[in-house]
Nucleic acid binder design. Structure first.
Length: 833
RNA sequence: GCCCCGAUAGCCCAACGGCAGAGGCAGUGGUCUCAAACACCAUCCAGUGUGGGUUCGAAUCCCACUCGGGGCACCA
């Protein structure tokens, strides 16, 4: 009902809150996103978003990732795919346990209350989840299979126990995996991590190091490069050699010690050996006279946190072990030292020190007056490291290196030394990984109990499968759960005391629980049938749906969750349970929602409350703001956003629906061609933009279409033109990906039945993508001098002829000889004079 | 120290190696109004962080640097 003023007679706005309430009920009845509803012939696509941890209500970060993820899932539905888009909760973990201690409750109380709150918020937020696949990792029905998988891994030798110095968080009173220690601090609470010697369960991820590395090649292009780089970095493959050194012990015997080095070619420059002070080896080889000194030193090292250890300015420290080792190529005796700069759990825990060509070794040599011998003459070095105390690591010519002398090729030097060592039986070429086994025991309550019984007679006995799940006791609460350095389960007498499944005698349950990352390493498979009884997942469903076609989530899981899930999938593959080796074919990492340049935090007081934003602007405007903010990978600074602008745009789009007067079902054939072209061009372009995850541009294109449609109605073909209906219906369908409530309101106003979410993607008419004429640009020396309206299929020769005949071009050339003419029909001619 | 990513208008961001501007925010002027809000119309605004190179032509490709963000780090 436009008048010449452009004002509408009808109410210029609609009530977003009322729309939200209304459509939610309709959608719940229609259940439009139930998997299988696209028909039996539809291609299947699994859309997955990282499931939330139930701490409180949803926050801005959830709002962002879900909005982005939903664009893909809803687009797939519109394109006719059968989409699996499930939701569940990663519901074991520390916050619930800490809340239980505070409130004198069981952790389940907090957990399941928050899950309900979040579920309600997700529904209001209008995400296209299939709620029938809902799961919670803290349900016995779920963790039964987490435990089952643990037992299978154990059977395959992939879950084992060992004594080892482990990362200990003194605040959370539990051990941590390497992946959970960030800069020497607990990833969760920020406390400084210390070391403890404990007997713990591990998953043997290291067996899969090479495959985890190799299989990443197939993910290149569909996973962010940065995530692949981080995983490669974490796995840390390095090539080198194992070299054997004989140590003459104080009692006259000889002990062979193997070191790992990436520079076996510098072996002639090895002038001493260093072993990790806290490794067994140090205690085993130390001379009696030095035993006390070593013990004192180790005590100092133990006390130091990783923070101290990691400081590179820290002066080198160590203890002479009072024994000597024989350099296998020179035959020279060299002293053996212990130091904390050598790590017990990397390589072999012992190194050959080549001070001339390794700065750390040189610093150590200098601190203790040990000899330095240069064996590589590096041409552009600033001087001899023996004098400058600057180690040279570059390429150069070998000197003081026996048979290598004069050689100037590092690769050749390395392979020659390895050949020599292998011939002498003193070493081998080898590959070393930085990755270490995954420590999965946790001394906390709210996790899946490790399904093992310790029997005084039979030892370690797995709980039989038919006795799974080993349920958590439900009668512990509050103070019962306080961390004591051992799991609270150890004090639950009724729970921990059991009978041995093997001999029937009295025995104790393993009282540790599993790292919650075990739970999340396989949940995507459980979604396929969360109530499946015959195994952790239905293998037939896995064949149908896996791998996940698109995974969306935060980059904070680049190593932890994603590496562990890849590991699990490979093990399941080796067990013959799945027929693929990678769980997630494509990965999208959204950025963070920040405020005023900084991450939102309580201490900064810059938090933005999602519920308040929704109350103020409505769900659609918040979602639209998230999607429109910029490329999905970029951080969104909420302070730079204008959700009010999103509201304005949605109202503007919505008003279009009220202006359409052509009846429902009117063919757009014969409608205004310019508007039809704009509509079809937009739809076509959006298809490609969504494939490329450029959702912000999708919104911009939709805005553009709204603008041209507005113009067509007010000052063009008028509201009755069938092209207007076609355009507005396209707008509603485009908006259904981002702003489902507004889209539904529009769809209804246009006279359609709900739901627009399943209306189907309009068919793009290729004939409408071709323009009658295009503008060709004529440049002289790269500067635009003229524009020509030409047919899109003009030949290069014709275009060149036209261009050269143009008066402006003739004037610009000004009689100069033409050296070259570049023609790119139909868009450009460049004349070089 | 090593490895990634980024830098375009006051701000958020677009631009198959081919006219630097799609969209939005903010601003300015107008229409409407008693006035305002809303809405609508119009409009202002940078030569793409710096320096080189490749090319007929570079925001785009290459090299070096600056700044910002992130990851790894006594890893032998």
């Amino acid at each position: 009902m436009s008048e010449q003023t452009g004002r509408t007679d009808e109410a210029a706005t609609y009530d977003m809150t009322a729309a939200q309430e209304r459509w939610r009920k309709v959608w719940e009845e229609l259940d439009p996103f139930r998997v299988g509803s696209a028909g039996p012939d539809a291609e299947k696509r699994y859309a997955l978003t990282m499931f939330p941890y139930p701490s409180g209500d949803l926050h801005m970060g959830h709002a962002e990732v879900m909005a982005l993820h939903d664009v893909i899932a809803r687009y797939w539905w519109q394109r006719g795919y059968d989409v699996l888009n499930p939701i569940g909760w990663d519901s074991f973990g520390l916050p619930a346990e800490n809340a239980a201690i505070r409130n004198d409750e069981h952790p389940a109380t907090y957990t399941y209350a928050n899950i309900e709150t979040q579920a309600e918020s997700f529904r209001r937020y209008g995400i296209s989840f299939d709620w029938s696949r809902r799961l919670h990792t803290s349900d016995p029905e779920y963790y039964r299979w987490t435990q089952w998988l643990f037992l299978k891994f154990r059977e395959r030798g992939l879950a084992y126990r060992k004594n080892s110095p482990v990362n200990w968080c003194p605040n959370d009173q539990t051990v941590l995996a390497n992946e959970q220690v960030v800069q020497g601090m607990c990833e969760r609470c920020g406390a400084e991590v210390t070391k403890r010697e404990l007997n713990q369960w591990y998953f043997k991820v290291t067996d899969y190091a090479q495959r985890l590395l190799d299989d990443m090649d197939a993910l290149a292009g569909t996973w962010p490069d940065r995530v692949l780089a981080m995983q490669r970095n974490w796995i840390g493959r390095s090539e080198g050699a194992h070299v054997d050194f004989d140590i003459s012990l104080a009692d006259g015997s000889t002990r062979t010690v193997t070191v790992f080095t990436t520079r076996p070619d510098t072996l002639y420059g090895a002038t001493f050996m260093v072993v990790a002070a806290d490794a067994k080896l140090a205690a085993e080889v130390v001379a009696p006279a030095q035993q006390a000194a070593l013990a004192a030193y180790v005590e100092d090292v133990r006390k130091a946190t990783d923070i101290d250890r990691l400081s590179t300015e820290r002066p080198k420290s160590g203890v002479d072990l009072g024994v000597t080792a024989v350099n296998p190529v020179t035959g020279e005796r060299m002293p053996v030292w212990a130091s904390d700069y050598v790590l017990a759990d990397y390589g072999t825990g012992a190194i050959m020190a080549v001070p001339a060509h390794d700065q750390r070794d040189l610093d150590f040599a200098r601190a203790f007056g040990l000899p330095v011998r240069r064996v590589v003459d590096v041409p552009d070095a600033e001087g001899n490291p023996e004098e400058t105390f600057v180690a040279t690591t570059g390429d150069g010519t070998y000197v003081n290196s026996g048979p290598l002398d004069g050689l100037a090729d590092k690769a050749a030097g390395i392979s020659r030394i390895i050949e020599q060592l292998e011939a002498d039986g003193r070493g081998t070429g080898t590959v070393n990984f930085r990755l270490r086994d995954w420590l999965l025991s946790r001394q906390r309550f709210w996790g899946a109990p490790i399904p093992v019984v310790h029997c005084p007679d039979c030892g370690e006995v797995p709980v039989p499968e038919d006795q799974l799940p080993v349920r958590l006791p439900d009668d512990l609460r509050g103070a019962d759960l306080k961390p004591k350095g051992v799991s609270p389960l150890a004090a639950a007498e009724a729970w921990v005391n059991t009978e041995c499944p093997a001999c029937g005698g009295p025995a104790k349950r393993d009282s540790d629980t599993m790292d919650t990352f075990v739970d999340s390493s396989w949940y995507y498979l459980r979604y396929l049938d969360p109530h499946y009884e015959d195994g952790p997942f239905d293998p037939a469903q896995a064949r149908e749906w896996m791998p996940v076609a698109q995974y969306v989530g935060g980059v904070e899981h680049a190593i932890l969750h994603l590496l562990y899930s890849r590991f699990f999938t490979k093990v399941l593959h080796d067990m013959g349970m799945v027929d693929f080796v990678e769980p997630f074919s494509a990965l999208l990492n959204q950025g963070q929602v920040i405020n005023q340049g900084k991450a939102m935090s309580k201490s900064l007081g810059n938090g933005v409350n999602l519920g308040e934003m929704i109350d103020r602007y409505g769900v659609d405007a918040v979602r639209l703001t998230m999607v429109f903010a910029g490329p999905p990978e970029d951080d969104i600074d909420w302070a730079d956003m204008s959700p009010g602008g999103a509201v304005k745009f949605l109202q503007r789009a919505w008003r279009l629906a009220g202006d359409v007067t052509a009846p429902v079902g009117t063919s757009a054939e014969g409608g205004d061609v310019a508007l039809r072209r704009a509509t079809h061009k937009t739809l076509h372009e959006v298809e490609q933009l969504i494939e490329g995850h450029r959702f912000n541009v999708v919104v911009a294109r939709t805005m553009e279409l709204v603008n041209v449609t507005r113009k067509a109605i007010d000052s063009g073909c008028g509201p009755a033109d069938p092209a207007v209906r076609e355009a507005v219906e396209a707008v509603a369908i485009l908006l259904s990906l981002v702003a489902p409530y507004t889209a539904e309101e529009m769809w209804e106003r246009l006279g359609h039945q709900p739901t627009v979410a399943r209306a189907g993607w309009p068919t793009v008419d290729p004939a409408l993508l071709v323009e009658d004429t295009v503008t060709a640009v004529v440049q002289i020396q790269g500067k635009v001098k003229a524009r020509l309206e030409v047919a899109p299929d003009i030949s290069e020769a014709d275009l060149e002829q036209l261009a050269m005949a143009d008066p402006a071009v003739v004037r610009a050339i000004d009689g100069r000889p033409v050296r070259k003419v570049v023609v790119r029909a139909p868009k450009l001619v460049n004349v070089v004079v």
